[in-house]
């Protein structure tokens, strides 16, 4: 016996299973971004524990204490969100959540295969850069709005750090655009079918990767939130849901920057074919495997490097990465346009 569903239910099912909604809500959309943020935190804790000869999360959750992260999130939600007396209330409340929104928006333009991308644009790489450039602003404002001297010092350090590493990031990105002759990230990945850009632009990759780690404020570039000297710096006044929003924003941004690095330099979804696995699964799988390698490297930095001073952070950005970025750009343009020039 066939039961006819009510028309409105049929419409809802059609909407939920439509290509647009699946991409936006499940993969590579909201659910994927949320789960990835949570898993990144768990992976970092387990990996660092192994580096330090500890077990890490263990008790909550049967496999490797994976439910510990969920428990922590619930704990943050159930803590009182205290707004300090000297804080600028509206900015203090809204900025961490705006930061989370802007970081999540980065994933709208990052492809996982030619099909698995939320919004493919001819200027995709520029759109991503716009969100990379805009996303620190709410976090800087959050530090300023806290009305604390620790937050203020942390916020100034954060702003100087972002200033120093945004330009190298942009210059390295330009090298990729020259080589692929396109602003579409899918075309950039397809330009690496035979050889990934990490081989032809190794200096550019180094500049981009270091700048990305700094943009995400990871060790050794975490001076703005230095626990020992600035007691969490610009985040110090945040607790409860505000702290959770900032942490999620930072991890989401890190993940997005690493997926972007995979697409720009590591050949994106191009990898050896595995018999029996269709391309629709294999391509995102290769992107994810390459992302995991980069993520492991970034998390290992925390285990093996010390925090470097502000002077060194700024020197690295202004005095080393910018010249290296320009030299990389010069070499790339020379190798690409030399035949034209000789002709």
């Amino acid at each position: 016996m066939v039961v006819a569903l009510p028309p409105f239910l049929v419409e809802i099912i059609k909407f939920v299973t439509s290509e647009s909604f699946v991409k936006a809500a499940i993969f590579p959309g909201a659910a994927f971004v949320a789960v990835l943020g949570i898993l990144s935190v768990w992976y970092e804790r387990k990996l660092l524990a192994r580096v330090m000869l500890r077990i890490g999360p263990f008790h909550v959750g049967k496999y490797g204490g994976w439910l510990q992260v969920i428990a922590d999130a619930v704990k943050f939600l159930s803590k009182e969100f205290i707004i300090p007396a000297r804080a600028r209330k509206k900015l203090f409340v809204t900025m961490p959540l705006t930061g989370l929104f802007l970081s999540a928006m980065l994933f709208a333009f990052i492809p996982f295969s030619e099909y698995w991308v939320i919004f493919r644009s001819d200027i995709g790489v520029l759109l991503v850069f716009v969100f990379i450039a805009v996303s620190p602003i709410p976090l800087i404002l959050a530090g300023w709005a806290s009305g604390s001297k620790y937050s203020f010092v942390g916020m100034i350090r954060f702003a100087f750090q972002i200033f120093a590493y945004e330009i190298p990031l942009f210059i390295a990105l330009t090298g990729v655009i020259i080589a692929a002759r396109s602003f579409d990230i899918v075309n950039i990945v397809n330009a690496q079918t035979s050889l990934p850009f990490i081989v032809t632009q190794f200096i550019g990759f180094l500049v981009f990767f270091i700048a990305a780690v700094s943009e995400a404020e990871r060790i050794p570039f975490d001076l703005p939130t230095a626990e020992q000297e600035l007691v969490e710096g610009w985040i110090v006044e945040y607790g409860g849901v505000g702290f959770l929003g900032i942490q999620l924003a930072m991890y989401t941004k890190l993940d997005a920057l690493l997926f972007l690095t995979v697409n720009l330099y590591l050949g994106g979804w191009h990898g050896p074919a595995i018999p029996g696995i269709p391309e629709s699964i294999l391509h995102p799988m290769w992107v994810f495997i390459k992302f995991l390698v980069l993520l492991t490297i970034v998390f290992l930095f925390r285990g093996v490097y010390t925090r470097i001073t502000m002077r060194k952070i700024l020197d690295l950005g202004w005095r080393f990465l910018i010249p290296l970025g320009f030299i990389n750009l010069f070499i790339v343009s020379l190798t690409i346009y030399l035949p034209t020039l000789l002709a």
């Binding site: 290509e19 647009s20 909604f21 991409k23 936006a24 809500a25 959309g29 909201a30 971004v33 949320a34 619930v74 939600l77 159930s78 803590k79 009182e80 969100f81 959540l97 705006t98 989370l100 929104f101 999540a104 928006m105 994933f107 709208a108 939320i118 919004f119 409860g240 849901v241 959770l244 929003g245």
Partner: peptide
């Protein structure tokens, strides 16, 4: 369409966090 849906969902995520905090904290 996917971009519009994703933008709405991304904007809803912080709202859900705030609502969760309002309920639990």
């Amino acid at each position: 369409q996917a971009l519009i849906y994703y933008t709405i969902l991304s904007a809803l995520l912080p709202v859900l966090l705030v609502l969760g905090s309002k309920l639990l904290a």
